[in-house]
Computed example of a mutant assay.
Amino acid sequence: MKWEDLRKSRNIKDQRGQSSGRQSSANRGSSMQGSNMGSSLLWMLLGSGGGKGKWLLIAVVAFMLIGGGGSGLFDLGFNTDNSTTTNQTTNTNFEYETSNADVSDEEYDFLAAVLGSTEDYWTEEFARYDLDYRYPTLVVYTGSVQTNGCGFGTTQVGPFYCPADETLYIDLQFYRDLTTQYDAPGDFAMAYVVAHEVGHHVQNLVGTMDQYNAAIRQLSEKEKNALNVRLELQADYYAGAWASFVEGEGILESGDIEEAMQAAHAVGDDTLQEQAYGRTVPDSFTHGTSEQRQAWFMRGFENGTLSGGDTFNEAID
């Protein structure tokens, strides 16, 4: 991925080794016009609406699957005793102190470049529907982090998005873990991870997240898992749509899409459960199989638009 000359986002904060304090205001894009995409996007089952009092933390990777059950804020994974566990995020008002240090390491700059590229794509794509795209913030941390609305996260959770503060959280250790633990090397593998989490931000902006949270209150654990899979596969689709944009910008290099596909395979529920436990329990899947994740990423890459990823009304296999 030829990322060095990309515009680097200013909506990224270095929280590595920082203590608690007051959060400085984030740079934001202009506000969206309304809480949904309007009649032009009625293809979405999960449109706007619903309250924002309760939030579900969405993670791209299933670190929570390793070692059984959930870790920290939530439980979305394999449960060895077949019982169900419900963990809700805590709604805190913790604020953190930003770093004044001049951070220039390559990994940090890479994340800023990828985030900037997603800003460019989604601003352009939202404009096609006469909407304004509001930029998310990306917080880079080490070890653990307190969010502003989704509780406490740790490295073991993996990269995640918090809808309450519209922020992506990434420990850069995961960048290296993609190679050493997940056999998914390459910069575009990590770019896929960022783009997937930005995909959850898109779902938040268009109202999908609200409707999802409202829907799961009426569902059994098995049904919640099945709906969550559709939510995650849509984020994979959005990541693929962004990849189509950067291809058009001449940013991709030979092998980049293969790197993203390998990452999508590595974080499939069936792959992770088989590696961790030697067996799979499909009813516990929350993110989709490796094949599903790859397929929906490629569908986004081939389509390249917001409106082609209706995972809620179409067959996902």
Rank of each mutant, 00 (worst) to 15 (best):
C150R: 11
E259H: 11
T147I: 14
F160Q: 09
S144Q: 12
R217A: 04
Y237M: 03
V229N: 10
T179E: 09
A266M: 03
Q203C: 02
Y212S: 05
R217K: 06
E197S: 00
G250C: 00
L231V: 14
G186Y: 08
E197N: 02
F188S: 12
L178A: 03
A195M: 08
H200W: 05
T137M: 12
P159V: 03
A191H: 08
A263Q: 03
G151S: 12
H201M: 06
L138P: 05
E197T: 00
G149D: 11
N228D: 04
A195T: 09
N204D: 15
L168G: 14
N148I: 14
Y141V: 00
H196S: 06
W242Y: 10
E197C: 01
T155E: 10
Y182H: 07
S220L: 10
G143I: 11
L178C: 05
A191C: 06
Y238A: 03
V194E: 06
A214D: 04
F245M: 04
A191L: 06
V157N: 13
G248Q: 07
H265E: 01
F188L: 11
T137Y: 10
G151Q: 10
I257N: 01
P185N: 05
V140F: 15
V202Q: 01
F174Y: 14
Q146S: 14
S254W: 00
T142V: 12
R230V: 08
F245G: 03
A241T: 08
T154F: 13
Y175H: 15
V193H: 10
T142W: 14
I170N: 10
M190I: 08
G240M: 04
D210F: 11
Q211C: 02
G207N: 00
C162L: 14
N228W: 03
L219T: 09
P163Q: 10
Q181M: 12
F188T: 13
E259Q: 15
P163S: 10
N148A: 14
L252M: 02
T167C: 06
Y161M: 09
S220D: 06
R134K: 13
C162P: 15
G255D: 03
T147Q: 10
S144D: 12
M190Q: 05
D165A: 13
N225I: 03
G255I: 03
I257Y: 02
A164I: 15
N204Y: 15
R230F: 12
Y141W: 03
S244T: 06
Y141E: 01
Q218V: 00
N228R: 09
N148Y: 12
A226I: 07
V145L: 07
L205H: 11
N204H: 15
Y192D: 06
A195V: 08
Q211D: 01
L168P: 15
